[in-house]
Design a protein around this nucleic acid. Structure first.
Length: 158
DNA sequence: GCCAACGTTGGC
DNA sequence: GCCAACGTTGGC
């Protein structure tokens, strides 16, 4: 799940570790469908910093509330207002998340693109700008193990 | 349903 | 700031 750190970063999320946050403002149907149809309580998600100096995966979140109407779309004063959505027939949905942990270091987009094991990761596929993307179990495990071991192999791999 | 014009995302 | 790669809109 992407967020611009200048707007909301992993450190913002960590400031109040027990706080839950609604992931509002998603206005793309594919991303909406993933929140609405796929994400279940207890699921984990990577937190990705986008549109910044060092884009990459920086931490882990957990789903604490399953999809419900994104009410920011109903408020005409809100930046995420969408007149085509209303409480009777909401167009946009969101989930609630909470901080789990930061990764020991940022796994940069540059690294993710170089790793053959992640060639099928949606994030590194050509032109993918979705703000929410699926990660398979094996991709998840690989990224976490790579994160732990990279310090030892830094000179070899890069 | 087609597609040109336009707006957005986000890496660089 | 540039621009590729989208997604959306709306005329037809």
């Amino acid at each position: 799940m992407k967020s611009e750190p200048s707007v909301f970063s992993i450190d913002d999320l960590q400031t109040k570790p027990n706080q839950t946050y609604c992931w509002d403002g998603v206005r793309n149907y594919q991303a909406r469908n993933m929140m609405r149809d796929e994400m279940k309580i207890g699921d984990l998600a990577f937190f990705y910093h986008s549109n910044c100096a060092e884009p990459g995966i920086v931490g882990i979140m957990e789903v604490v509330k399953e999809s419900y109407a994104d009410f920011s779309a109903f408020d005409s004063d809100h930046q995420y207002f969408d007149p085509k959505s209303n409480p009777e027939n909401p167009r946009w949905f969101m989930v609630d998340l909470k901080f789990v942990r930061k990764l020991p270091r940022t796994i940069t987009l540059k690294e993710l693109k170089l790793l053959p094991e992640l060639a099928d990761l949606a994030l590194v596929r050509r032109g993918n700008r979705l703000s929410i993307m699926p990660v398979s179990a094996s991709q998840w495990e690989f990224i976490l193990s790579f994160c732990s071991y990279k310090a030892c192999h830094k000179a070899v791999i890069f």
